[in-house]
C-alpha cells in the first residue's frame, strides 16, 4: 500500500506538471512570435512588453561591431516595412543576411531591443555543388537545342 501511495503521489505531481506545462505552453506556443506587420500595426499593444518577432534579415542592413559586441539589423517579412533591431550580444554562427530569425525583447520607440537572437533555419538542405549544377544545366541546354 505504501509503495502504491508513492505512485499515486508521483502520478499527481506529473499530472500537475502536465497541466502547468500545457497552460504555459499553449499560451506561448500558439503564437510563438509576431510578425513585423502585426507589431507595426498596433504599436501601443506591444510597447515595453517582452515579445518575440519572427522575420527575415534585410539584405545589406547588418552592422556588426565586433569591439563593442553590438549587432544591429533590420527585419522584414515583405521587404517593404522594416523594424530596426538592436542586439548586444555575440553574432550567431548561422546568422546571415536574408535569413529567418526570431528575436526576443522589447519595442523601445521605433527600435526593437533584443536580448535573445534565434536563427531559424529552413527545411531546405543543399550541398555546395553550384559548379556541378551549372555544368549539368549547361549540358541540358545543349541537349535541348
Amino acid at each position: 500500500m505504501k509503495t502504491r501511495n508513492k505512485f499515486v503521489i508521483g502520478g499527481a505531481v506529473i499530472l500537475a506538471v502536465l497541466i502547468a506545462l500545457s497552460v504555459q505552453g499553449l499560451q506561448e506556443m500558439t503564437v510563438f512570435f509576431y510578425t513585423p506587420q502585426e507589431v507595426l500595426a498596433s504599436p501601443g499593444k506591444f510597447e515595453d512588453k517582452t515579445i518575440r518577432i519572427g522575420a527575415l534579415v534585410q539584405k545589406g542592413s547588418v552592422e556588426w561591431n565586433a569591439q563593442a559586441i553590438q549587432l544591429s539589423f533590420k527585419i522584414t517579412e515583405d521587404g517593404k516595412k522594416f523594424i530596426p533591431v538592436f542586439y548586444a550580444g555575440v553574432k550567431p554562427d548561422l546568422f546571415r543576411e536574408g535569413q529567418g530569425v526570431v528575436v526576443e525583447g522589447k519595442m523601445k520607440g521605433q527600435r526593437f531591443e533584443a536580448n535573445q537572437l534565434l536563427v531559424k533555419h529552413s527545411e531546405e538542405y543543399t550541398v555546395e555543388t553550384e559548379h556541378k549544377k551549372n555544368k549539368e544545366d549547361y549540358y541540358k541546354s545543349i541537349q535541348a537545342q
Binding site: 506529473i14 506538471v17 502536465l18 506545462l21 500545457s22 504555459q24 505552453g25 506561448e28 506556443m29 500558439t30 510563438f32 550567431p92 554562427d93 548561422l94 535573445q116 537572437l117 534565434l118 536563427v119 531559424k120 533555419h121
Partner: peptide
C-alpha cells in the same frame, strides 16, 4: 548549434515533450 538555444516553448517542442510526459 543552429538556432542558438537548447529549448524554446514553441508548438513542436512543447507537444513532443508532452508525448514524453504522457
Amino acid at each position: 548549434t543552429t538556432w542558438g538555444t537548447y529549448w524554446v516553448w514553441d508548438a513542436r517542442l512543447t507537444t513532443t515533450l508532452l508525448l514524453f510526459l504522457i
